[in-house]
Design a binder for these strands. Structure first.
Lengths: 355, 355
DNA sequence: CTGAAAGCGCTAACAT
DNA sequence: ATGTTAGCGCTTTCAG
């Protein structure tokens, strides 16, 4: 790209192209080490020279060359986010919301964020990230019930944090929503309102959270000395369309369910649509509850009637993930650690009492 | 993070932690340079040793340390995407679609993508990126009519590509949608169908594309010896809500428009809703056309009736941007260059003939 | 309190 | 065809 310099705009530092430590040092009549120390507020540098150095650096628009600094300190001050490219392409995804949370923290803590999408071969991407040392650690997402990436990453010696949990022996750090408690609360609420024929519209069964939620669903029943109806849990994808289809199927069955507990607001929206299609009014003829992770443009309060839901902003996960990972790579905490985010159960108008 | 090694999973390279050029060289009885050359397919390296080196590297899981390599070659092989954090938070945004396109190309070309969100001070972020040399170039988005970043970046000597165009003297490279032609075609189509009372639901006036589209709107009229009605162009945000409000206002006016041309499918969706609210049937009582940039979950074909629209997938912009930027930083092309993406006009059921 | 010197891991010019 | 050497720009012992 051309480099036509322009007057004004930047105070006066037009020539801060060659702004490196050496030239700064020469200009100040100091050694590189002194300048370097002064800039990083090293003690044993008198206030006076520190100010002088800072002023000169400021004027020169100096900032340490990140690559050189990385090489010297052995850290990249960069973390990676590894995800399947398709998560950017699906219409219903909470990916960007997680990303927003991550971005916020990464920026706050003066780190950089490397985006590492992959098409199929995640293992290759992780291996590359690890061996090329481009990042100090990575955030990985969408854990399988038993996720092989944990062993791989431990083996690679690459620090990481998982968004979610998985059933493996190897140690790992994670941030997760409280799926168990959340689904148990939701189901319990419906039971306490007198519902018995409840259908759980759950996530796909190869994801660990879906298994956890299914178990929680049953636990809510047994905690009350009840038993869940057979085939009450549907393992389907997190979309409005499948919410709709699943609900339609059940609403057409001989024993019509009186309530649905959904894994996401997307699915709940589908259930609402199915209810309408069947001439049922949500909150009067049919109860619907869900977990609301605060995805942009699809929140519990967007529905009519407003949806009763447990809620944890998904961006909080992003913030937790990034914060934990940086703490880990900086050695401020020692892994493995886990964090389960709390949630609120917010009662709105989508539930009704039965009997 | 802990480093519990695990058997299996990775063939046998459990100790490829110390896999660097030096150890590889020693192990092979060669010099670092030879190994380095062999690995990068340098000529003047006999096939035989090349194979031997490659095999050893493969077995050791070796990959050059990206930071060291960057420092040596003077390039980071990384590009940055600078954007306002809020673009991740708004429900109606084409950001992720652009991102998907960028990701694809960056990965293909073996580059890394650094995400640089900012809250308010974009100038600071750009300055930091430039002086810390963390990236070879940046993609910037959402140009203002006269965008000060162009001068800044040229001054900083940071290679960049703009998504969109702007009215400045300084040279810059860009990839843009063909706003002018697209809006002129859309407006022309309506005029040719006999419409005269047409309202343009345009973007906010501080964005350059909105100005371009407004001009194109008028050009379509004058090209036919006609004149656009006064106050026919509305400069509003790209949301469904404003599409709705704007349309409602106009549909309640004394002279009711017979057609709307919209800047995005979001806005068109709002217009559809307004039409319904006024008891009008789109495609019979009211015509609606728009530019469709293929944003996930909001496409022309999602509406009923399907929306007549010009279309350029927004992810193509992302691909164009990344490809151009990498070509630029690698010196494969010389800036400034610009690329205007072609579009198709797809006739669907949202238009009707008047008189 | 400050400076000289080594080195992070790689590439590239300069030998040979 | 391969090795030697000198950096890339920074941080960091180790001296003074």
């Amino acid at each position: 790209m051309s480099t036509t310099p322009t007057k004004g705009l930047l105070p006066d530092k037009r020539l801060h192209k060659g702004a490196d430590l050496k030239s700064l040092a020469i200009q100040l009549g100091l050694s590189q080490s002194t300048v370097s120390r002064a800039l990083r507020g090293h003690h044993a540098i008198p206030e006076s020279t520190r100010r002088r150095v800072e002023a000169a650096a400021e004027a020169a628009g100096y900032r340490p060359n990140a690559r050189a600094r990385s090489l010297a300190i052995g850290r990249a001050e960069t973390i990676g986010l590894v995800f399947p490219l398709e998560r950017l392409q699906l219409p219903e995804t909470n990916f960007v919301d997680v990303l927003a949370g991550i971005s916020t923290v990464v920026t706050q803590r003066n780190y950089s964020l490397l985006l590492s999408p992959f098409r199929d071969d995640e293992v290759a991407v992780l291996g590359k990230l690890a061996s090329s040392k481009s990042v100090d650690g990575v955030i990985i997402t969408r854990p399988l019930v038993v996720d092989p990436r944990i062993a791989l990453l431990n083996q690679l010696g690459l620090t990481f944090v998982l968004h979610g949990r998985t059933e493996v022996q190897e140690p790992y750090s994670f941030v997760d929503t409280d799926n168990d408690a959340s689904f148990e609360r939701l189901t319990g609420l419906l039971l306490d309102y007198g519902h018995r024929d409840i259908v759980a519209v759950n996530g796909l069964s190869h994801f660990r959270y879906a298994a956890a939620r299914a178990a929680a669903f049953h636990r809510a029943f047994s905690a009350r000395g009840l038993e869940a109806p057979t085939e009450a849990v549907e393992f389907v994808s997190m979309t409005e369309a499948t919410g709709f289809e699943t609900a339609m199927r059940h609403l057409a069955a001989p024993v019509r369910p009186t309530a649905f507990v959904c894994g996401s607001v997307f699915q709940a929206r589908g259930v609402y649509r199915a209810a309408a299609a069947c001439g049922l009014t949500v909150g009067r003829d049919l109860s619907v509850v869900a977990h609301d992770d605060g995805v942009r443009g699809c929140q519990a309060t967007d529905l009519t009637p407003a949806l009763t839901a447990t809620t944890t902003p998904i961006s909080a996960s992003g913030e937790g993930l990034a914060g934990m990972l940086i703490d880990l790579v900086e050695g401020r905490i020692k892994g493995p650690v886990g964090r389960i985010l709390p949630f609120d159960l917010i009662l709105r108008d989508s539930v009704h009492v039965v009997r």
